[in-house]
Design a protein around this nucleic acid. Structure first.
Lengths: 191, 191
DNA sequence: ATTATCTATAGATCTATAGATAATGC
DNA sequence: ATTATCTATAGATCTATAGATAATGC
């Protein structure tokens, strides 16, 4: 049942993509058997593509975070501040709470990832990337923009983590509202 | 090797306390065998005290969060705002980053707990409790105090989650500094 | 007699590896 | 001939339970 070189590369890509979604949905404890089954393969084939589960996890997180940062990249003819505004609005939305598998890996996996070095490194690199994009898009004094970018990232991640844990209690929506109404966020979102 | 009723109650208390620390240190994946061994018992004795692992986890998280909220309780002859200031200063400290086992369960377990209903309920109840204490201690207009309390909680949790994932990169300290320097936090911390 | 704890184990995971299979690519 | 994938399995977990043991508490 061997596949062509091209098809094998596609298998690899599918494993990373599927892992990126399943990890965010179910956590770092999700098994290789389940990931491979979701791709349509058996777990035995895994080690032709990756050295270890940890290697896959790191690659999946990196890719997911790069995709997120890419949506913040400057687009010709569109103000950077607008791209940031849309990013923040989507981040602080019910849709984001409901779909961790497509959402921010830091919010979905932050507390667990801090305990496994490779995952932590991937998340930290992503956080740094996001903070740098935020600061650039905010503009103004670079030092204050950087500080505000880092503080905004903290508030966004914390709001989504707590709101998700809140289930369907009132705190769920209140978390999003309270952060959106904070001065720095209002200035951006009301633009 | 049976123990007295009193000693059995002490065993139960020790299991909850040990679990509260180990869960925050190692995550929800920590095994009953390890928890019981840390208490000085074998895993076989566990089910005389608890119906399931999940029941222990919920109880351990509840207790840890109650302890946290208790440090915010009003003390005779001490301004509420001062208690809140100290709480926030400790929360946003290197010591808190370095000792998750004694720290905030929401920051230590937030993203994983969101996936297991009982744990999520415990964390959400704790978050609500903290938000209510914050709002009361902030004083002023109740609506705005509540909003600010919720937003501060989000920023604090997010900052600790990201800072812990950041390992020893510069982002670790920057996270704490950026949130501390945010207007609402400065107003409180500079008192 | 009751019961807190222990030993032992069932049954279900999980990561990783070994060896077989069958299709690609030379 | 090479190699992508599969089957099968080793070895190490993990939660939960069954039954034995021995000390408490009546």
């Amino acid at each position: 049942m061997r596949k062509s070189r091209e098809a094998a590369a596609e298998s690899r890509r599918a494993i990373v993509e599927t892992a990126a979604a399943l990890l965010r949905e179910r956590g770092l404890g999700v098994g290789l058997t389940e990931i491979m089954a979701a791709v349509g393969m058996t777990h035995g084939g895994f080690y032709r593509h990756f050295a270890s589960k940890e290697a896959l996890v790191a690659e999946a997180l990196e890719q997911a975070l790069d995709e997120k940062a890419a949506t913040l990249a400057p687009q010709p003819g569109r103000p950077a501040r607008e791209a940031l505004r849309d990013y923040v609005a989507l981040y602080l939305s019910q849709a984001h709470l409901d779909h961790p598998e497509k959402g921010c890996p830091i919010a979905a996996l932050g507390s667990e990832a801090a305990r496994s070095p490779d995952s932590a490194r991937a998340l930290a690199a992503g956080a740094e990337q996001l903070a740098a994009c935020f600061a650039k898009d905010l503009g103004g004094d670079p030092i204050e923009a950087r500080r505000q970018a880092v503080a905004m990232l903290a508030a966004m991640v914390g709001a989504v983590v707590i709101a998700r844990a809140a289930g369907d209690s009132p705190l769920r929506g209140e978390m999003l509202d309270a952060v959106r109404a904070d001065p720095a966020f209002r200035a951006l979102l009301d633009d």
